[in-house]
Design a protein around this nucleic acid. Structure first.
Lengths: 203, 203
DNA sequence: CGCGCCTTAGTCAACTTTGCCTAATACGCT
DNA sequence: AGCGTATTAGGCAAAGTTGACTAAGGCGCG
């Protein structure tokens, strides 16, 4: 619920403003806030007493827009929420990790190829971020910590790309997936069942 | 919906088995699957024709347990889902990134301290993973790619910890958060409003 | 002027997710 | 044997999330 934080520094705002700001940050990507959830969140926060409605003006025959601002209680809640996120470590759920745990379900050559492809995608993303870091637009209109966030993302991506290449190498080398103790022991028989190579995945 | 994948390699299974397996991987942490959603997912997948119920036995006076297995269609769906996750890049939403974008709302010294604390937490997590990598339990009972996943996580954590220290340094150095173009120009006036330092955050 | 398209605000129903609950049986302990 | 706790299996209502939809006004343009 970082909607609260946005209202805090844009107040007084109405829902549509928040939505535009979020989309301009493309925050639907890296935060988990889709435009549809904004209004629900605003109403929810209001009835919890963290926000308060300031006015409800009607401009033309358009839908009436209600303007919100933060309450004292909302301030406190925001502080504690923000501090929680800064001081505690809560790693996000990574869908690729879930997929990777099914590694034995893919043919070895496809897995290696996909990992190398992933490394390329990551490096492409890094290159894109580096060029925007040098663009005037970002330097002149965005606070510097936006660039710092890009640095974090490129750093992580670099580490991950290196890992992809390393793992792809290992898979190509033909090492067994089985635990070290039991090279061909019992219990893992039907496990390495794999899918047929998919023909159209050449890219 | 990686429930499907689990059913695929554990079949035939009933819901509770899936749940235990997920919890034993502590997959509620790094995948987005809480125990409560399993049964709903199983029913949903069944009515989509991706799973089929095999039997519904009753052991004692306990709730009847229904056993599922995957259908042909489910196989195909799983393949395409899995391939999508392997070949495409979809970075997960990171709650810390959201919090970091509110950097100017924290006093400088607290922000720097929190970042250094975060670096420590990350390094502690890395140390823990490294010791489990060397433990016999993991080496002897888990497939090797579980260890590979740990390597990915430690790699990312290392990159992030280094970033935290670097940024903490910059914040301490007192650089301005404002865009490079307009050191004290218009429009950013009330922006750097900050919270009071929280006393109990000494740790 | 007429017409199509975009922007503005916000609603809505469908779909998911979630934590908590039930209820019976097994198990360990004194 | 008696009793408290853990395990087994799954249900459920509340809460959250989502993308698609509405509907009016403005704007460009031939």
């Amino acid at each position: 619920m970082m909607i609260l934080g946005l209202v805090r520094w844009m107040q007084p705002v109405h829902g549509y403003d928040v939505r535009r700001e979020l989309l301009s940050w493309s925050a639907d990507k890296w935060a988990n806030v889709q435009p549809g959830s904004i209004y629900h969140a605003l109403r929810k926060l209001t009835e919890e007493g963290l926000l308060r409605t300031v006015a409800t003006e009607q401009v033309g025959g358009r839908p009436a827009r209600t303007t919100y601002e933060i309450t004292e209680k909302g301030q406190e809640e925001f502080e504690s929420l923000l501090r929680g996120l800064w001081w505690q470590l809560n790693e996000p759920a990574d869908p690729f990790a879930a997929a990777f745990s099914f590694l034995p379900a893919l043919p070895r050559d496809e897995a290696a190829a996909a990992l190398r492809n992933r490394a390329n995608l990551l490096r492409a993303g890094m290159a894109w971020m580096r060029t925007s870091l040098e663009s005037d637009w970002l330097r002149d209109t965005k606070p510097v910590h936006v660039g710092w966030m890009f640095e974090l993302w490129t750093g992580r991506a670099e580490a991950e790309a290196a890992w992809c290449d390393r793992i792809a190498e290992r898979i190509d080398s033909g090492v067994s997936y089985l635990p070290a103790g039991l090279e061909r022991a019992e219990g893992w028989s039907g496990w390495e069942q794999r899918l047929p190579r998919h023909p159209s995945q050449s890219e």
